[in-house]
């Protein structure tokens, strides 16, 4: 905490002249300096440590809280994943041809054995249209000749639910068809 005091010659030495030595004096007493450390330093340090500790505590609380939140959200993801998987399985099974055909049959639909097409670009009828009545086509036989254990299991597990959902939605009005831009043309043949 002390700096060396330097005695400076009052004049620069002159070589041409006989050097004159200045009279020796005692090192002047330095200004008394405070030897006691400042209180604020200590306060800052202790306060800093305290702040770090509190911050660390808060962060660790937040982090562990976050862990529980992450865990609960993961659980939610898992459960939604299960739901998705379950519905996906149902969808694939419900779209199986056996199921669709038997549903169509229940609605009274028959197979048209006399394919004919209406070409929208010029309104031409291609083929020989025939009545798609029960008499004109061979009806599908029993739908269980091509087995589907997945559909059977599904039908057994939620038959009532499907019946309910399967009710025809009679209130839905058909969207009116307009031909302002002319007749729509098919993109394929």
């Amino acid at each position: 905490m002390s700096s060396p005091a330097i005695a400076r010659p009052t004049t620069a030495p002159d070589r041409r002249r006989t050097p004159t030595r200045p009279p020796l004096t005692a090192v002047p007493a330095r200004e008394a300096r405070k030897s006691r450390p400042k209180l604020s330093y200590a306060l800052w340090t202790v306060g800093g440590v305290g702040a770090i500790l509190i911050a660390q505590l808060l962060m660790s609380v937040a982090l562990s809280h976050g862990a529980y939140e992450v865990s609960s959200l993961r659980t939610q993801i898992t459960e939604l994943g299960w739901q998705k998987e379950s519905l996906g399985e149902q969808l694939e099974t419900l779209s199986s041809p056996q199921y669709v055909a038997s549903a169509a049959h229940d609605l009274g639909m028959v197979i048209n054995s006399s394919p004919a097409y209406l070409r929208l670009s010029d309104g031409a009828v291609l083929g020989q249209p025939g009545e798609a009545g029960a008499a004109s086509s061979i009806p599908l036989g029993p739908s269980d000749v091509v087995g589907n254990s997945a559909a059977d299991a599904l039908a057994a597990s939620n038959a009532p639910a499907l019946e309910e959902e399967g009710a025809p939605a009679e209130d839905v009005a058909p969207t009116p068809v307009t031909f302002d831009d002319g007749l729509p043309s098919p993109k394929t043949h």
Binding site: E92, T93, Q98, G147, N148, A150
Partner: peptide
């Protein structure tokens, strides 16, 4: 494993 279309 699931076979949604059964015997198809």
């Amino acid at each position: 494993r699931i076979y949604p279309n059964g015997a198809v």
